[in-house]
Nucleic acid binder design. Structure first.
Lengths: 222, 222
DNA sequence: GCTATGATACCAACCAGTCGGTATGAACGC
DNA sequence: GCGTTCATACCGACTGGTTGGTATCATAGC
């Protein structure tokens, strides 16, 4: 899952290729287990079993379970960045199309089992926001960084399609993340992605209205 | 917290007034502790300490921690029903005003510490959806029942303000719940309610657009 | 050999749930 | 009224399994 051209040509030269691979396995396993049962209920041995390793490997790479969770958050965010960079909508020239393409893409990947598409960050921050400040900070950071990517397209689209509208691209980007997080919760409650998908339909319609296609440069919205 | 006219004039005659009071204390404590740290991290002794009781009392009233959580979900939902029944917007004659008043009210109660306004159901279902089916079912049920209340006003408002629009009141009501749940997650990540409040501003604007005030009976929306 | 890596065995703390016990008070006979 | 009886309500020490973390050992790469 981690690709390095040449061992040694890397920023962290002290880790061998094999060690990097097991670290990645541990992180992937942590992401999966925590997405399935949450941070507290995720046992270290669950993560080790999922990775096909033992606690020796785990505590060699992480100082604690909490440190693993924080590293898993970074790993998850980096993975997500790669996925969205490679998504088809990322190449659209029109920023409005990128915004709507983003929503469509997020809807399209609501497939398979719940732990495969739900958000590690939202899951962890729910339980850890008060008792584990470092986890909360990590989740806040990576959610914010992802929102900033959406914000960039939203701001570019607004400059073209609704330059005089009063809504704030930054706030709208955070709103999109809230809708996604809420969609995941509904999907979990319903035990299926359908309820989440229809939330993204509403989000798309909202963005369509915020960025009126025909009225270039007028900005009719409040 | 529980008012009964005469003991014995009640539906459940077998429980004394005092026992009902301690049960309520345990449920209030469970709601608070689980909202603070999540279901898994909430220890039975935490709940007992918060209630000023001991484990003897806890396991006298609940068969298990899971049973307590399910009872707490019902308790939380009943409390919420009472709060929203008593809210000022509930008396508005115009259903559109009730819909918008609901959003405004939800924004207004984002005050104080996070465990005081976040949703027990969304918090629990995140961790328990896979490992505790009974908890998932309870959360699904009470979220759905609350959404149904919103749906009633939305449907009435749509009949007046957007009768020909294609959007679905049931789906829009679920969307409102998703936005709320997502707003709570952002508030937790940011450690403050502001990020959640601005999400409700977007939700309000969306509902304003879905229910155009001037165009009674035309239904301009997609 | 020396260091990095990972396995195995182990520990101490934790925690859901149990169990024997006490207190309160209602119901009943008388 | 009064003692007897019994169920409900609650207490708190205890238990047995669990779990994060540690200590130690085996192996491989340089």
């Amino acid at each position: 899952m981690i690709e390095t051209a040449h061992p040694g040509a890397n920023a962290a030269p002290s880790k061998s290729e094999a060690a990097r691979a097991t670290l990645a396995r541990l992180l992937d396993a942590a992401v999966h287990v925590i997405r399935s049962k949450g941070y507290s209920a995720a046992r270290v041995e669950d993560i080790c079993a999922e990775a096909g390793l033992t606690k020796g490997a785990f505590f060699h790479h992480f100082a604690s379970k909490e440190a693993c969770a924080i590293a898993a958050a970074a790993h998850f965010a980096a993975n997500a960045d790669a996925v969205f960079d490679a998504a088809p909508y990322a190449g659209f020239a029109d920023p409005r199309a990128r915004v709507l393409g983003y929503v469509d893409f997020r809807k399209a990947i609501l497939r398979g089992d719940l732990p495969q598409f739900t958000c590690l960050l939202g899951t962890m921050v729910q339980e850890a926001y008060d008792s584990h400040p470092a986890i909360r900070a990590a989740c806040d950071r990576y959610i914010g960084e992802h929102a900033a990517r959406v914000e960039a397209d939203l701001a570019a689209a607004k400059a073209i399609y609704a330059p005089d509208a009063t809504w704030n691209p930054s706030s709208a980007a955070r709103f999109s993340q809230a809708v996604l997080q809420g969609a995941f919760i509904l999907a979990k409650a319903r035990h299926g992605p359908e309820a989440g998908a229809e939330c993204l339909d509403h989000l798309r319609r909202y963005f369509e209205i915020l960025l009126p296609e025909g009225a270039t440069g007028t900005g009719r919205n409040p």
